[in-house]
Amino acid sequence: MTTKFTPDHEYIRIEGDTGIVGITQFAQEQLGDIVFIELPAIGKVLKKGDEAAVVESVKAASEIYAPVSGTVSEVNAALSTEPGLVNADPEAGGWMFKLTLADVTETETLLDDAAYADLTK
């Protein structure tokens, strides 16, 4: 199991051919209190970089992009009643959606832990 990152502050945790997507600790701190999350429909086919979800803070809406290509297989339904989970626990309980990866090798283009840490330093 590895976790990769985008320069736009999404993470994707890869478990076999499934990727679990959310936003990083850094991103949730930047956004502040999250009050509403719009999640993709299950079955939606996304290309890398497509808009996948929208996170609303008190002040603004921010788009979440698909880190890699794939099909949405599951969404975190808890976020519809408790969007603050993304603030409290972004990289575990605050995950947003799961993708069945179209091409596992695509994840190699993403940032690893060290490279992402470097970006947000």
Partner: peptide
């Protein structure tokens, strides 16, 4: 994710 802080305000 986009944007980060600057657009969070006007």
């Amino acid at each position: 994710m986009s944007p980060t802080s600057p657009r969070v305000f006007m």
